[in-house]
Amino acid sequence: MYKKISILLKTLVLPAAVMLVTGTLGVGTWAQAATQSGNKIEKLTPSMSYAEYQKRYEKYYGDFTAQMAEEGNPAEFLLDDGKDLANKVVGSKGKSCASCHGKDALQLKGAATTFPKYNAELKGIMTFPLQINTCREKQMGAKPLKYESYDQLALTMYIKSLSNGMPIKVSIDGPARPFYEKGQVAYYKRQGQLNFSCAICHVQYAGYKARSNLISNNKHHADHWPCYRLKWGKTGSLQRRFRGCLKNMRAKKPPFQSEELRNMELYLTYLNNGDLIQVPGMRM
């Protein structure tokens, strides 16, 4: 049985980790799998099925999530401000988002589903906040918005919320492929003083408790950003969460929209393909 699996691993185009996450491989042994470009990634097996994880989550956090749903999401306040920003004329060319994309930028409905994606000019991965800033600089002649500032989050959140209820469909074909693999390597790389990787917690030990926190499975990790996080007491982006986790691992924190974080965002969003976008989200 194991021999068959190892032959499969060598021949399959898809990296082994994706299959592990989707649960197509059974009980695995400790081994290293390789990506197309030859980078070794650690092969990790989920300790429990997703159904078992959901059961544990419901038991541990069920009442609390119900309470959060009742109280409502403070991030919804930003949506109105985002709408105003989309209609506001800024920059040297006298344009607003609405001048190209229709009133309230409504033509951007569904735009967020394909992000992050490859961009030829950037020679890298374009994320949604970066796309908004690029658009502001090139088309409107306006200053880019500072990442994690109130206006930036409000505008991103508003335009992304137009795609609410639509499934994520990120493509990793063609030129995006090497960046996807870099993101995967970063996701599986052991780093920091504590020698953790993203995957060891969120793939292998998802569903266990680290002190009083239940470690979350990486399904539904990328479909609701920017979101309101109770620990922050304010709204933040996925990359802020990445940086927070890296800090807890006592590793180096790359700056916002740096290449590492963008590749990682592509990898994680691809894992969440098919999940419905629900912005703004709310997390603990």
């Binding site: 400790w30 650690e42 003083q193 504590l194 020698n195 953790f196």
Partner: peptide, 15 residues
């Protein structure tokens, strides 16, 4: 003991 352990190397990484 286990090359794929999650346990941080407290001595090697000077924690």
């Amino acid at each position: 003991f286990n090359p794929h352990t999650i346990m941080p190397p407290f001595g090697t990484n000077k924690i």
